[in-house]
Measured scan of single mutants.
Amino acid sequence: MTEYKLVVVGAGGVGKSALTIQLIQNHFVDEYDPTIEDSYRKQVVIDGETCLLDILDTAGQEEYSAMRDQYMRTGEGFLCVFAINNTKSFEDIHHYREQIKRVKDSEDVPMVLVGNKCDLPSRTVDTKQAQDLARSYGIPFIETSAKTRQGVDDAFYTLVREIRKHKEKMSKDGKKKKKKSKTKCVIM
């Protein structure tokens, strides 16, 4: 069974824990209790493949930012979460993405942009803004509501699919490099 290491990042209060708990335990946590770091595991079937999701729910508070490099190193894919009623959390996505790329030393890291709290009427981040940002990053965008469960499975499952595509691409690139290195030079 394939294991996928997913990391949920975003500013404090955007609903990272609520999304994760909704996926794992099928219930909505409405009281806000700032996370330092929590880890969850769940076995699911995605596109006919049974897999184990190892999900790291991270601290959004700035005082825990020193811990970010460590979990970013171990993560295979990242859910970059903002709240649709919090423009600052949307603007912060850029910083999370840049930090992930720096730590992973790669421009090509599996990510999904997630606009959470889409059940709320007080939207300050337009869907088109988020779609445009995701398009500019070359990553999928999904709106979710941890409260109603809308888009929750889709967000995590899409990230797994992005990781699969990335692994497939990397193995193809690896095979191309191996083929090239088999060419021999004969000096007579």
Rank of each mutant, 00 (worst) to 15 (best):
E3Y: 06
E3Q: 09
Y4T: 14
Y4M: 11
K5T: 05
K5P: 12
L6E: 01
V7N: 11
V7H: 15
V7Y: 08
V8G: 02
V9L: 15
V9G: 04
G10M: 00
G10C: 05
A11S: 09
A11T: 08
A11V: 11
G12Y: 07
G12A: 10
G13R: 09
G13M: 10
V14W: 03
V14Y: 07
G15N: 00
G15Y: 00
A18I: 05
L19H: 13
L19I: 13
T20V: 09
T20K: 01
T20I: 09
Q22P: 03
L23D: 05
L23H: 14
L23S: 15
I24Q: 14
I24Y: 10
I24V: 09
Q25L: 09
H27Q: 15
H27P: 02
H27W: 14
F28E: 02
F28M: 09
D30H: 10
D30S: 12
Y32D: 04
Y32N: 05
Y32P: 05
D33I: 05
D33K: 02
D33Q: 06
P34I: 04
P34M: 07
P34F: 05
P34W: 03
T35V: 01
T35W: 01
T35I: 01
I36L: 09
D38I: 01
D38Y: 02
D38H: 01
S39H: 03
S39I: 10
Y40Q: 00
R41S: 07
R41K: 07
K42D: 09
K42N: 13
Q43S: 13
Q43W: 04
Q43F: 05
V45M: 14
V45W: 07
I46K: 10
G48V: 06
G48M: 06
G48Q: 11
E49L: 04
E49S: 11
E49N: 12
T50M: 10
T50S: 12
C51I: 13
L52M: 15
L53H: 05
L53Y: 07
L53W: 07
D54Q: 04
D54H: 05
I55K: 01
I55S: 07
L56S: 13
L56C: 14
D57I: 01
D57P: 01
D57E: 02
D57T: 01
D57Q: 00
T58S: 11
T58H: 03
A59L: 02
A59R: 06
A59M: 06
A59K: 04
G60C: 04
G60L: 02
G60F: 02
G60I: 02
G60Q: 03
G60D: 04
Q61P: 12
E62C: 09
E63P: 12
E63W: 04
E63C: 08
Y64F: 11
